[in-house]
Design a protein around this nucleic acid. Structure first.
Lengths: 225, 225
DNA sequence: GCATATAGTTTGAGTAGTCAAACTATCAGA
DNA sequence: TCTGATAGTTTGACTACTCAAACTATATGC
């Protein structure tokens, strides 16, 4: 098995590659996510390449091999099942479980993981709406669009909160924005860089465009009658 | 917080001291339990002493300071609550949870631990009958005697299995010997070094004296009428 | 009381991961 | 095409942990 450190690099490269259009991760971003200097990241990425977990060439971007992606998805599966357990079984708040899962994900064995999955009823997604990869290394990403892309007047359902920071999640919860919440886009102010929404059971809120890009929704079909 | 390695040494010293009459742990035993050479154990114990977690002098035994014991009890609390969770909530077998808890105990935060304790209803002991230390660092050790010390004819209740090895626990389970089982001592054969018992719902079994020393029971009061 | 087995210690070296700081490639703008 | 700015790389050193092997205390048997 990979060390805890290697697992953290794999997860960082996987998520950064997913966010970038080129599908690769920049060394400085990897370093920032893992929490080390870029020099350290360079030397670790070399090791990943030597272990056939990543592809990389000097001054070029980093991407995972299929072996590396598979390993990253396994870590993500552990992470998200643990988050789900912490919220559903132990009743912890969705804003704190990310950091807790970050530690536990490296210590859980396949046996305990599968028992957890069974206990939770094989959930499809975690408390933030992130899909849980299957044991065979596949993931089903439900269709959704960033809230930032919605036109004023759209009625939508919040399906995923991508920003896992505690204060970001607390902000959403405090304004009635949870997974499954129905909301309406009230107005979009490109000048101010904000978007105002109203949740079914909350007052209106404004989000920055950056924040609204990290909230995914499904646009609701128009109601008739 | 102590590193995972330091936690393992503390736990080893704590349990070895408890088993020894002098209340100290031998360097070679510590090394064996932690799984390192004695040279490595010596240098780590020096670090523990420097950190005021253990008292030790050259060629003398090792014992924990009160600070060290406190830390060890905290680790034991985590270990035993995790074992209880794995058996009660995830339905894993009592013979496998020791090794699983060994990894998880280093990764669980106080917040998750207390949520687990609440979820489990503040259990007093784990699935092997080991008492769970309280959050304040106290432990209640219920009175019990080794099965090896029981006279033939005694009726007793199994309250604790000290040998955590998978095959030892499987053996007990297979012969109807679980925590809470009522059993009767049929005969003691000092010549053969064995003790034969009969459980309420199982056939008779013979245990070696060594094995019977690691099974704790409460002798049942005589029934009247 | 001395030899020796046993337990414990020390030393030197290695691995994994890290940083600070010196250095180098790449690219955008003048 | 030169010049910086930026991003990435390399080097040397450090920490935490480990082992093998040489060495030393202690206890025991004769």
């Amino acid at each position: 098995m990979a060390t805890e450190t290697v697992e953290n690099y794999l997860k960082a490269i996987y998520t950064l590659s997913g966010e970038s259009p080129a599908g690769e991760a920049a060394m400085s971003r990897i370093a920032a996510v893992v929490g080390v200097t870029t020099g350290t990241a360079t030397s670790m990425v070399k090791k990943l390449a030597a272990a056939k977990l990543a592809r990389y060439e000097r001054f070029g971007g980093v991407r995972l091999t299929s072996k590396g992606s598979r390993a990253a998805l396994d870590i993500l599966r552990r992470h998200r099942l643990i988050e789900t357990f912490l919220v559903h079984t132990l009743n912890l708040d969705w804003s704190v479980v990310h950091d807790e899962a970050e530690r536990l994900e490296h210590a859980i064995s396949p046996r305990v993981l599968e028992a957890l999955d069974r206990h939770l009823g094989h959930p499809a997604s975690d408390p933030h709406g992130d899909p849980i990869p299957h044991a065979d290394g596949t993931v089903a990403e439900p269709a959704s669009v960033p809230l930032a892309a919605c036109a004023p007047g759209s009625a939508c359902r919040l399906v995923r909160a991508m920003d896992q920071r505690e204060d970001a999640l607390n902000f959403l919860r405090r304004h009635g924005l949870e997974i499954g919440s129905e909301l309406t886009v009230e107005s979009v102010e490109p000048g101010a860089g904000t978007i105002s929404v109203k949740s079914a059971k909350g007052s209106g809120v404004s989000l920055s465009e950056a924040a609204a890009r990290r909230v995914l929704v499904q646009v609701q079909p128009k109601r008739h009658g």
